[in-house]
Design a protein around this nucleic acid. Structure first.
Length: 334
DNA sequence: TAGGCCATCTGGTCCT
DNA sequence: AGGACCAGATGGCCTA
């Protein structure tokens, strides 16, 4: 389960940032190199940094550690005998450019990861480390849910999600969850409990709503007024969102949450927006769930496995949204 | 102002 | 030899 490798062709195979840097036909001199850099973006900053770097290197030439030995790493130029030639400077600049490009690719991949874990927001980005932690927890939580073969417990799910996260990130996730106070009571021990209903019902049901009725058709709507983030994953209101296959272009005017692929109540919309990576082929979940022998998924469907099937959940065509699902998904937008 | 986060530079190491 | 990868060092920016 969840072992198939992800593919990130748009991220890893597209040297978006490094393309501007000269790889061939290098300038004869460093001055030409810098002149070339000046034509590309951020050139001023880099040039300034180069100057600073050169200056600092000169100042740090005598740096030694506690044992009087030169430090092994760091932006300290080792002038071992022969002076640095223009050629070596150019090569160093090349290496710097490649390193920048590499790091940009890494950051792109990280950004794509941010978009598929809960609580994605363009305005309040998770840090790198928190993104990785949350992603790990998310995978773990989903795996646990699948293994359990029953409807996931929201609190357990959230607890798993928040394991090891910093307090701010935990707060963010909690905020994204919008754990509606009316659905919770706190007992005398400070433990969270639900008011009258089962935890599931408390979180997933709407008064007077049919759980099988898509939000867009039920008349009841999620209260999205309080939070600027976009609800995701199921609502009919998001159908236009689905129509755009690109997560980048899918919400050009929305500066909020885009895609936490999170559904609890047996509906695993592991991906709500179809990224370029997957739009051509299989879906996240399809990769994970379409085991050999399993009923073929209908075109344009998220998942649909009958109760008679091996998969323990009712999986639904993406457009067949559940009100309860919306409740949960909505809770991931703060 | 301290601390967190980040981008960048840099030298070392490994691999082709 | 050269590129990829890694990690230390550094400074800038932002926030509590």
């Amino acid at each position: 389960m969840l072992t198939l490798p992800f593919e990130e062709p748009h991220v890893m195979c597209e040297p978006r940032f490094g393309a501007n840097y000269p790889r061939e036909g290098l300038p004869e001199s460093l001055e030409e190199q810098r002149k070339h850099d000046a034509d590309s973006s951020n050139s001023d900053m880099r040039e300034a940094e180069d100057d600073i770097s050169d200056r600092e290197e000169d100042e740090r030439d005598g740096d030694q550690d506690d044992n009087g030995l030169p430090k092994k790493r760091g932006p300290r130029k080792k002038r071992s005998g022969k002076p640095e030639t223009d050629r070596s400077k150019v090569r160093r600049h090349e290496a710097n450019s490649r390193e920048r490009s590499r790091m940009h690719g890494l950051n792109d991949a990280l950004e794509s990861l941010r978009k598929v874990v809960p609580c994605y927001s363009k305005t309040q980005k998770l840090s790198k480390i928190e993104t990785l932690r949350l992603a790990k927890n998310y995978i773990w939580a989903l795996s646990e849910t699948l293994s359990a073969g029953k409807r996931p417990d929201l609190l357990a799910f959230v607890q798993t999600l928040c394991k090891g996260l910093s307090q701010p990130t935990t707060n963010l996730v909690a905020g994204c969850l919008q754990l509606n106070a009316r659905n919770f009571l706190t007992d005398h021990n400070g433990e969270v409990m639900f008011s009258g209903k089962s935890p599931y019902d408390a979180m997933y049901s709407y008064p007077g709503s049919d759980v099988n009725t898509p939000p867009g058709h039920s008349g009841s709507t999620l209260d999205s007024s309080a939070k600027p983030f976009r609800h995701y994953s199921y609502s009919g209101a998001y159908e236009p969102y689905y129509e755009n296959p690109s997560p980048e272009g899918g919400s050009p005017h929305f500066d909020g949450q885009l895609s936490p692929p999170m559904n609890f109540n047996g509906i695993f919309s592991l991906k709500h927006e179809e990224p370029p990576d997957y739009s051509k082929g299989s879906h996240y979940g399809m990769r994970y769930c379409s085991a050999p022998g399993r009923t073929a998924l209908a075109h344009n469907s998220m998942y649909r496995v009958s109760p008679e099937g091996r998969f323990p959940y009712d999986l639904h065509v993406r457009s067949q949204s559940f009100q309860a699902q919306g409740e949960v998904n909505g809770s991931f937008h703060n």
